[in-house]
Design a protein around this nucleic acid. Structure first.
Lengths: 345, 345
DNA sequence: TTGTATGCGTTATCAT
DNA sequence: ATGATAACGCATACAA
């Protein structure tokens, strides 16, 4: 048999007061005599009274909770982002409700509907990779549901988003390799149709151009299956390393591809960075893992989460729509390890 | 200005009906004329009516949501467990509210209070490593809040929990190495005061005994700082490998220690498994990472999450307390890679 | 200073 | 077949 939690009504009955008096006493209203206050608060404490947040929500038309929709929670980018989201939410008195879209449009729609039917005050959303039709999101937007997109963002007029400057990150990474003395830097990129791939390759090319280094098409390899298929990585690497003008360094533009390129190098006894300079994009905190010698462009998942949650809660708590923060752009951090100094030249 | 969602009352007013008629029509009650039903349902659909879950919660005294308290969401064990939890919850129509205890007792208490004040129907809990006083949990238990512990469990009469058979896992792993032909197997364990460490070392010893292999105290190394400090790993490994009767294989009893032992081997050019057989415990899905040659005892985080959520929801939905499922014990999976066959010997 | 009444959105229990 | 009303727990405008 379930314990029935104590309510204001119970307290009122027990003390021979009215519910409003109790309510006011508990909220420390100035219009209640100190004596009554004391009695009520004492009784409430003794009986471990807690206000029912659901009743409050119904009354105040807000639930003090925000919804988060991501692809897969187990994806470490998302779990780190959620970590950041939770930290801000906790700070500001919100709880976090998680939903996954499993990279399926259908699941995304049902998750959004579920959250949106007034049980959350706002939504943080990373759209599924399968989502090309944004009607369900637009609909919510038009109904003024506070919403912030991050990571995989949709792009329509007015939607708020937090993104990473991929072009700058790739530029910075490439420039870093150039400054270390590498002369012939190749690029292993992810699927050519992804916007993040295009942005990163752009940054790579811009860096080469800034230092008047030649851009060789053959030095850019696209991995179209997300780096899941090892053969694809092998092929790309062999392609690169069999050229007469063999690259002396690599910038790898996706985290999954990064780990697999590292694995390839390990299996083929290619020493990083002595034989091949390398910088990889990575969301995973590689500190814990087996790559002590790889410099990494870390996407600030935690920071993205914090920034997005902060923006969302600001939107929720402001009466008027916030337009000035429409898009927030963050920057990747370059984490250098075992400084990639080329031994040979 | 915030969009005001449509309610039953709005529909009733618009159609000149009473709220109860509308409510019944929407719930497809048999005591409503087909004509009225049709009109109401059509109007509701057109105006995108969604019942307000908060009002429902208030009425039904349930929120169709479960709370999860873990140490750190970004910890991949937890994020995978949450993944499992979410999958079951979604299946059964519950949403998942996340809270972190950040491995602090204080945060744990506030998280539990927050969730418990009737906004969730049940709680899944992995207690913080700092928690030695269980009053706050017992209190909830006594108020009949449905609760299931997993991973870091508390142990008092009647509490429901989902745990992993660590002894069996270590036994299986050690036995596997023995069957592969390794004769002198060492054990790198985590902090000696943790229960999981004791259980795992127990399994290791039992396996050796079963095959009449000698148990050398010097072959068991405890890592007391969780494997964070690399020096500790180095020291332990040197200790082991400098013995006159050098071990030919290792069982590593914690995931963080596993990755760092791997790193040590990599840096010291010790080939796995040719020079040293090895099996490690791991929560992380190492498939994606840089250890193609390590066999792993995978703790089924996803399965733990599913099992715990399933049990919790059964408890929530049953009228009487469930006693028969008090503790569920799961088994680790041994994932073999590049079969650890010793070349020499 | 305290009490009464109302409403938040929904459904169940009475009426009609 | 439909409508009126009360109730869930809380806060507050209004009354006393």
């Amino acid at each position: 048999m379930r314990f029935e939690a104590i309510t204001i009504k119970d307290i009122a009955k027990a003390l021979g007061l009215s519910t409003s008096t109790v309510s006011r006493a508990l909220r420390d209203s100035h219009e209640i005599s100190p004596k009554t206050k004391e009695i009520v608060i004492k009784y409430a404490k003794e009986n471990n009274y807690r206000p029912n947040p659901i009743a409050l929500s119904l009354k105040e038309k807000r639930s003090s909770s925000i919804g988060v929709v991501v692809g897969e929670i187990a994806n470490s980018f998302f779990s780190q982002a959620i970590n950041g989201i939770e930290s801000i939410a906790h700070e500001k008195g919100y709880n976090v409700i998680i939903a996954q879209n499993k990279e399926q449009l259908e699941r995304e729609i049902s998750a959004l509907q579920f959250l949106a039917s007034r049980s959350v005050d706002g939504i943080l959303l990373s759209v599924s990779t399968q989502t090309s039709d944004f009607d369900h999101i637009k609909q919510l937007y038009e109904r003024s549901m506070p919403m912030v997109c991050f990571d995989c963002v949709v792009d329509f007029e007015g939607i708020h988003k937090v993104i990473v400057d991929n072009t700058k990150a790739a530029f910075d990474g490439t420039e870093h390799l150039i400054k270390k003395g590498f002369k012939n830097i190749a690029c292993v990129a992810s699927s050519s149709n992804l916007s993040i791939t295009k942005e990163r390759v752009k940054g790579y090319i811009e860096a080469l151009q800034k230092y008047q280094l030649p851009v060789h098409e053959s030095n850019i390899q696209y991995i179209n299956h997300g780096g899941v298929i090892l053969e694809e990585i092998s092929e790309a690497m062999q392609q690169l390393l069999s050229q007469k003008n063999k690259p002396d360094a690599l910038i790898v533009c996706s985290d999954r591809v990064t780990t697999n390129v590292m694995r390839y190098c390990q299996e083929n006894k290619i020493q990083i960075p002595d034989q091949l300079g390398m910088i990889g994009f990575s969301n995973i905190d590689l500190t814990d893992l087996l790559t002590p010698s790889l410099s990494v462009l870390r996407q600030p998942a935690y920071e993205i989460g914090r920034t997005a949650a902060d923006l969302l809660i600001k939107m929720i708590e402001s009466k008027r729509p916030i337009t000035e923060f429409e898009t927030v752009v963050l920057t990747s951090n370059l984490i250098e390890r075992n400084s990639s100094v080329p031994k040979k030249k």
